[in-house]
Each structure stands twice: as structure tokens, then as C-alpha cells.
Amino acid sequence: MDSIALGDVEITRVVEMPARGSARDYFFPDVPMEHWETHENWLAPTFLDPAADEVRTMMQTWLVRSRGRTILIDTGIGNGRERPAMPAFHHLNTHYLDELASAGVRPQDVDTVICTHVHGDHVGWNTRLTDDGEWRPTFPNARYVIPRADFDYWNPANGHRTRSGPRMANVFEDSVAPVHRAGLTELWEGDHHDIDDLLRIEPAPGHTPGSCVVWLRSGSDRAVFAGDLLHSPLQIAEPDDCPGFDEDEPRARDSRRRVLGEAADRGALLFPAHFPGPGAAEVRRVGDRFAVKEWAAWRGGREQARA
């Protein structure tokens, strides 16, 4: 499995679904074709399939071992879900828990789950369906750290009108409410939330009201787990480009520019949720935009690349 050490912290990539293509005009309906053409030379073929006119993404989560803690950043889609408006997520049967076991982690070993936001592909394995037909916490010894803003926004009882609409059907009910009823949630708010002395959660709203990023500082190494702040490396070079899934595009642009700037200034390795291939990158400033400085060098010989 892909893993990398940053200071005293080990990060492992846990893949739920391998890289797949999605129609570009569905994923990024308002992004000019010229942007894709300008950057095609380094986006293709890993992140863009020009012939099929598809954006390539991946479903993965990040396993972080820090200070004796076993932490999951996001939990993917989950199995057996009713997702009628999201066919790619509907009634999945993946081997995610087997992948986690390959990394040496059983569900009972996880002590912290950080949800960067409440979308169906980030909270799904919070729960699993048991033999009695109930959704119960997958990680029974974990505290589930969830932004309160998202908990309230996506709770159907609050009646919010959302851009995602039917795409979020059943997500709160089967993946969030059960862990809350079990008393395992930690709903945070404010300008930050510390997991330990190495990991800090900070708000990065826009994609959802409660979207957040997780900053890592260990020795001289820095990283930021960016959730859905970016869906394609195109957004590094064109940070004002938004996918069709951002609830508040102006706020998402502001958050993306701010976090990319901080990552560039701190020399932090950027871990978005859905980048295939190298999956993570250092970024640098290029005027009022950004570029990939170096892709992540994973343990096991994954080569670095430049763009």
C-alpha cells in the first residue's frame, strides 16, 4: 500500500474505488474548455482523458498514525447504500475494510474519525449494516469528529434547501445519525479544533458550509488534508474553477486560494480526497495562481513527477 512518513507521522492511502472517469461537463459544468486544453499536457492521462472527455478521480481515504493514535480522515462511500440519485454510489460492495486490514488496522483499532465534510463519499463507512438490519458504527471505539455546521445543514429535520438536493438522499440518516445516537460524535465549531499537538482542523467552507481541512505539523514536515477543496489538479492552476458540487462557489474559491497559498508558503504536502495517480503534491505560487512543485514520493518507489 502507498505510505509516506512525515516527521513522526505515517500516512497510508486506503483506496475504496480505483481511478475512474466521469463526464467533464457533468463534473465541471461551468469551467471553460480552454482551461482543460491549456493544461492538457500535464493533466492527461492520469487526471484527464481527452479522448473520452472525462475527468479521472479516485475514491480514497487517509489513514494517519500519530502519537499512538489511529486516525481516519474521511470514510468513503460505504457498502449497501441506497443512493438512487448517485448511481456510482448505489448498492456498492467494495473491499474497503479488507484494504484497511492490509494496512494492519481493524475497525476496533481506529480511535478517531475526522469527517472533512458531510457528503456521501466522505462519511459512508462511518457505519455498516448489521445482521439485525440496523446501521451501526463501523469503528466502535472511535470518536467521530464532524463540523457542526455540516451536521446542522445536512440534517433533514432542519429543512435546508441545498444545491446537492436528491444526491444527498439517505446520507445523514444512514451514515451520520447512527453514530450520533451512539454518543460517538464530537461536533466542533470555531476557528480550529485540535486532534493532538500535531493535527489541527480548520474551517474551509464553500464546498459545504462546514467543509474543513486538517493541518499536520511534525518536525520540519507539513501537510494539509484538503478534503474536497479540490477535485482535479486543474484547480491548482485555475483556483477559481469550481465543480458542480460546491454549495457556495464564492466561498469555495476563497477557501481554495487561501489554503493553496498557505500550503505553498509552508511547503506543505497537499492531500486532496480524489486525486488519482500520485494523489498528493507540493504546490508553489505562480503569480496569483499555483502550480505543482512536486508530486508525492510514496514509500515503495513511486517516482516523483513535475508539472
Rank of each mutant, 00 (worst) to 15 (best):
A273E: 08
L269K: 10
F27S: 09
P87N: 11
R106Q: 15
W36R: 06
H95L: 03
S22H: 13
V9I: 13
E37W: 08
D150I: 01
L100E: 04
D248C: 04
D197K: 11
N155V: 11
C212Y: 00
E173P: 11
T94E: 00
Y96L: 15
A268K: 12
L100D: 05
F89L: 00
R13P: 02
A157G: 09
D25W: 08
S175G: 14
D25H: 10
D49L: 13
H39Y: 07
W215M: 12
A5G: 06
S220E: 15
I73N: 14
L63P: 06
I11Q: 04
N170H: 14
P45I: 13
L198P: 00
R67V: 05
P209C: 13
V123R: 03
W188G: 10
L260I: 11
L72A: 04
R136V: 15
P243V: 03
V110C: 06
N41R: 07
D240V: 07
P166L: 03
G133V: 00
V214G: 02
F151C: 01
N41D: 12
W215Y: 09
D121S: 07
G165I: 06
G21L: 07
R302A: 14
D197V: 02
I77H: 06
Y26I: 13
E34Y: 14
D109R: 08
H180N: 14
H119E: 15
F27L: 14
M59L: 15
P32T: 02
D121Q: 03
F151Y: 14
G210R: 07
G80T: 02
P32V: 02
H231D: 15
G300W: 13
L6D: 10
V31S: 09
G133Y: 00
E16V: 11
D194H: 04
A296N: 05
A237T: 09
Q108G: 14
R136S: 09
E134H: 06
M58W: 12
V292R: 15
S232K: 06
V55D: 09
D111F: 05
E294I: 04
E202S: 02
S211T: 03
E173H: 10
R24Y: 06
E54N: 05
T57S: 14
L184H: 02
R251N: 02
P239D: 10
S22C: 04
D254M: 08
V118M: 00
L216C: 06
R81L: 09
G78K: 07
P84M: 02
R306I: 06
Y96Q: 12
V179Q: 03
N93A: 04
F225T: 08
N170I: 00
E189P: 00
P32G: 01
E282Q: 12
N93F: 00
E202Q: 07
G183A: 11
P278R: 03
F47H: 15
A51D: 12
R181G: 02
A264V: 13
D53W: 09
I146M: 03
F151P: 00
R257K: 11
G165Y: 04
E247W: 02
I73S: 14
